[in-house]
Simulated assay, not measured.
Amino acid sequence: MKLSTRSRYGIRGMLELAISYGKGPVQIKSIADVEGISVKYLEQLISQLKAAGLVRSVRGPKGGYILAEEPAKITLFKVFQVLEGPVIPLECLDESGGGSCDRVAECILRPVWKDLRDAVKGVLTKVTFQDLVDKVNSGEQLDFQI
């Protein structure tokens, strides 16, 4: 499983907003410069996050973007879902009926793929942006056990 740039860059952008939480709005160009992300691409990602209610825009000469709620209430999973959709390593696990397999009934590996999905979801749900901010501020490496 490979994360796309959408989720990687979106999470990095959200982290910059989390680091600045309570200090006022942050402009997209500033985030893009710090993170080495295209302004145009980041605008698209922030637009999706705004539509999902995770980010708010602030107008004016000192305007920009802020988190819609405190970093401790926003998990990596929320951002991942907005930018990537549900965690589905294989089509046979798509519960919305979007895909299936002729061998679902007798597939010996299906429980393994379910465990993989659940593990990924578990890690992404466990980590909040406040956790990440705390790690950044302490200079520690991330180490979250599931």
Rank of each mutant, 00 (worst) to 15 (best):
Q81C: 10
I108H: 10
I11Y: 05
A51F: 11
K73H: 08
W113P: 05
S100H: 11
E140S: 03
I19V: 13
E43V: 15
G97W: 10
L142Y: 00
D115C: 15
G10K: 09
Y65C: 04
S57T: 13
P111I: 08
T128L: 08
I108C: 03
G53N: 13
D102V: 14
K23M: 10
K23N: 12
L142G: 05
K62N: 12
V26T: 00
I46T: 10
K50A: 09
K135N: 08
I66C: 01
P61D: 08
M14Q: 06
V26Q: 08
Q44S: 11
P111D: 01
K23I: 02
Q44M: 10
V55M: 04
Q81M: 14
L142E: 08
V26E: 03
I74S: 05
L109C: 07
Q145N: 10
K78P: 06
P89D: 00
D131T: 09
I37N: 09
L109F: 10
I66V: 15
C101G: 06
Q44A: 07
K50T: 14
S47D: 15
G36P: 14
L45Y: 04
T125P: 11
S57A: 12
V87G: 04
I74E: 01
T5L: 15
L93F: 01
V87R: 06
E91M: 04
S4G: 15
Q44N: 09
G97I: 15
D131A: 06
T5M: 14
K50D: 07
F80T: 03
G10F: 02
E95Y: 02
V123H: 07
S138C: 09
G63T: 06
L90K: 14
S20M: 14
Q81E: 15
I88H: 00
T128D: 03
I19S: 06
R59H: 10
D118Q: 13
S38V: 13
S4I: 14
D115M: 15
G36W: 00
K40C: 07
V58M: 12
P61V: 12
S20Q: 15
L54N: 08
E35G: 03
E69Q: 12
C92G: 06
V26P: 00
Y9V: 11
N137V: 10
K73Y: 04
